[in-house]
Structure formats: structure tokens, C-alpha cells
Write a protein that binds this DNA or RNA. Sequence first.
DNA 1: AATTATCGGCACTACTTGAGTGCGGATTGA
DNA 2: TCAATCCGCACTCAAGTAGTGCCGATAATT
Lengths: 162, 162
Amino acid sequence: MLKLTKRTEYGLIALTHLAQRQGEVVPAREIGDHYPIPRRLLAEVLKDLCNADLVASTRGAHGGYALVRPAQELSLGEIVSALEGAPTVSSCGDENLLHGENSCDVQPICPIRSPLVKIKDKIWQMMLTTSLASLAEPHKPYRSLASQTQANGLVKSSIKSP
Amino acid sequence: MLKLTKRTEYGLIALTHLAQRQGEVVPAREIGDHYPIPRRLLAEVLKDLCNADLVASTRGAHGGYALVRPAQELSLGEIVSALEGAPTVSSCGDENLLHGENSCDVQPICPIRSPLVKIKDKIWQMMLTTSLASLAEPHKPYRSLASQTQANGLVKSSIKSP
DNA sequence: AATTATCGGCACTACTTGAGTGCGGATTGA
DNA sequence: TCAATCCGCACTCAAGTAGTGCCGATAATT
């Protein structure tokens, strides 16, 4: 439903925490102590971040995790990719496109494929150009899009209640 | 997993089709004939679009659906809202926020709430400022974000395979 | 050498959501 | 009357998400 998973949420919490102690090795236990996150799941998430080379792990006593790069050089896109795969918008926008521009199951007359790809690209662009640091800083403006007025008169009572 | 549903995909197909015959009443059957979409599902989607007042329905023989507004004044955000609810990014970004800024289940010490809201807002802003018409037009540029370079050196081999 | 704290990997259950379908009823034009 | 259309309810099936359990491997401390 166009939402990030809990894994990503927990990952962002963990990475933000690691960013505050940049370079230091922090055990997962410490992160788990600070936030109401299931410890076991947090460990799972950190493992994935480690496999994606976003954090480095040290084993044994006094072990833990540390950011590999400073938060300014960590993009939201990388984090999301590591924890739930690159964002796709629908069937058409899947990794099919990454491997040769066809194999869409709605192939011959799909007037929507291009639009879906556009949407996916927009979201993806945003994520690649958004750093972890900019998300963590509370007062950073992000109004680059708010000035656009392509379509207007929107957002009436059309919000569907869950 | 941060993707739009099939419902939205089918909805965009239908709306694009209706846009091409702007004002005319088009039966769902005609749309179903043109694209490989399960007819029954398409009807479901059109019903939702009708309930959201994005299309108008005419019953009886020679009935069908028609766009209520021109495609230039239909935002992607409205369509997504009608078909799968307003986009949320995670538990924190839910409709809780719409009703008074608290009741987040990770309340007191959640350094990630603000970031998640930022992400949601960015996506939502993009959708509200993107019209159906701009998605349907094949050659429309949408590079307003591509020039940004907050974070760089990204998208290495960190794309997780499904 | 034993202990303890940490990460690593496998596999499993329960729950939620999404995709798709069936059926009969109501409305309207021919 | 008949046929084409929209309308509404409810249901199954598959896939993804959240969360947990267990035990082994590693390394510092004692």
C-alpha cells in the first residue's frame, strides 16, 4: 500500500542512532534498550544492513555495529534497497525493466507502463538524493517540491478511510 | 514494500482510457476489451473511483463511466487516495497524524518519526503535484528532482535481489 | 580454560494484505 | 420483455510482513 515496512523503520532508527556515535562500535543491545523495538527483529535488520555494507559488524564481546560511511553520504535509497529491495511501483515497474526493457506481462498495449515507470523514477530519485543526515536533522527544509502547481484544487474529501 | 497496488495500476489504465474520450460515457466492458485486465476487478476499481467522485457512472443499457474533470486537473494523489488510501510510510506516518499529531506507538523517544513523516510528505507532495495528464503524455519531462545532489556516490551493488 | 557477551544463520508460526472470483439484484434503453 | 449495464456483498487463495526460537561462532574477560 505504498508504505515502508517496519524493517525500514527500525533500520532508520538504528542508523540514526549509529550516526550519533559515528565511527564507534555500538552493540545492538544498546539500540534495543533505547527504543521499543523487538530486539530479535532489530538484530535481523542490522544483519541485512551489514550484508548490504551499510554498517560493519564486530563479533565477540565488546562487538557491535558501526556506520561505514558518514550519514551525509548514506542515501535513503540505499537503506530502503538493503531492507526491502529497490522500490517498484507495480508489476510493470519491476526489475524486469532493469534487465532489458520488456517482459512486462501487460505488454503490447499497456498505456500505463510508462506512467508507472515515471512514478517509480520520481520516488526513487527522491530517495537517492535524500541522505540519512538530512532526514535526521530536524530543521532542514525540504520544500523543493511544494512550490510546484501542476495540478490544483485537490485533496478534497477523497481520502479513503481505512 | 513501497509499491502501488494492481488496483491503482488498473485505475490508471482506466482513467487514461477515459481521458482519451473526455466527457463521453464509456462502458467498463470497452476498457476491459482493450487491456488484459480481469474484467471483474476492473469493475471493482471503477466503482471505487466512482465513490471517490473521480468518475461519474451512468446505469442501464448504454451506461458506463466518464471522467468528471479533465485529466489536467486530476492528481495522482487523488487517484491513489481513492484506490488504496493516502500513502503512509510506516506506522508512525499513519492517519494518527491527521488527527492530532500524537498517538504514535513509539512515542516518547522516536527519533525516526519526523524522518518518516518527511519521506511521506515528499512522496505525497509529488503525487499531489502530478496530474493524470502529465503521466499520460509520453514526452513530458519530469527532471525537477534529477538535478539535486544532496547525497552522491550511491546505487552501487546494494540492490537486493528479490 | 571457563565464562560471558556479542554477532550469525536457519526455520518456523501467525497475521495482514492483495489479487481475483461468484452471484444475484437494480436500473435503463431497445 | 429482453439485454446491457452498473451495484453490492462475501468469499477463496496466494504472498508478504511481523515477530520468535534456537543454537553455533567469535572474541574479550576472568
